[in-house]
Amino acid sequence: MSGYKRDWKGNEKRRDGPKPPPKQNLVQNQYTPMFETIRAELDEHHDRRERIVKISRDITALSKKIIFSLQRVRKIDPTLPKNIQSEIDTRLSEIAKLLAALAPEVQGINRHRYARSLMCLEELAEALTFAHYLRTQTLIGPADLNLVVQDLTRQGAAPSASEDTVMTDDGPTPAPAPAPAPAPDSAPDSAPAPASASSLPAVVDLTQEDYLYGVFDLTGEMMRFATTSTALSGTMGMAAGAGAGAEGNEEPRTIVADMHELGSFFEMLPVGAGNKFQWNKKLDVTRQSVRKVERLGYDRTIRGSERPKGWVPDLSGVGDVEEEE
């Protein structure tokens, strides 16, 4: 009766505080060894997923930064403004290192096992397709994009020294070589893997979903790009290169046309069976982006001539100022 201490409310106080529950190894029975094996396996799986998620988050953040940098570009041109290009290169070399760390975790059977933790690849695809578009005004194909990502992985695995080669791929070259295109992802990567097995066998592969959803998001970036460049320069960031006279009878091709093409492209594709819900959501956003760019095109046709020509706040090309028209 009197042996208990009481707290201020009058409740009995436990003498020695709560005992730590002696959980593990308390019960040993014939199934314990089996469950211990299973525990080891599950831990391995969870740890790997954790590592992947961490890397994935970092890659996503870096990809987003690349996209922000790219949004500071004002016109489509084979060579990006120097300061932007160098920002992107820095980010890409960081991504390359992360990809190299990621690669061994997502080989073979694990590629799809952890697919849901690899959303970063979508984001990366978005950044890379956007960069490609700004340089060439074309859509890069999945096979070529996959090669870019594989190259990045290899560069990240190689002991630095190769930063200057990052993303110097074709500037004005037309949407490149359809030759590797028909091959599905598996063929090109399985060949080099054993060949260079000594130092860098593993590369990260994009799946078709990564590519397609990345391109879905690309339409949003194109919309944003068109909007800002129209607002700031009144030109919708047209391709200034290609030698076609700036105010020739017919301008090369507008973003409006590109957006229309992408829009129809996605409308015509059969709905990806994997995740109809997500697909339709993305398609909806794409439709809206197309509408917005249409509107821009209209505005510019109607009122474009009324815009005062003059000061153009082209923040991008601080280093290399080029005049438009």
């Binding site: 074309t138 859509l139 037309p174 359809p178 295109a181 078709q208 290609a242 093409e261 492209f265 594709l269």
Partner: peptide, 15 residues
């Protein structure tokens, strides 16, 4: 002239 936005082969391949 600039190349087309989307390589015509791409669509068929994806489809």
């Amino acid at each position: 002239m600039a190349p087309p936005m989307i390589d015509p082969a791409l669509f068929d391949q994806l489809r």
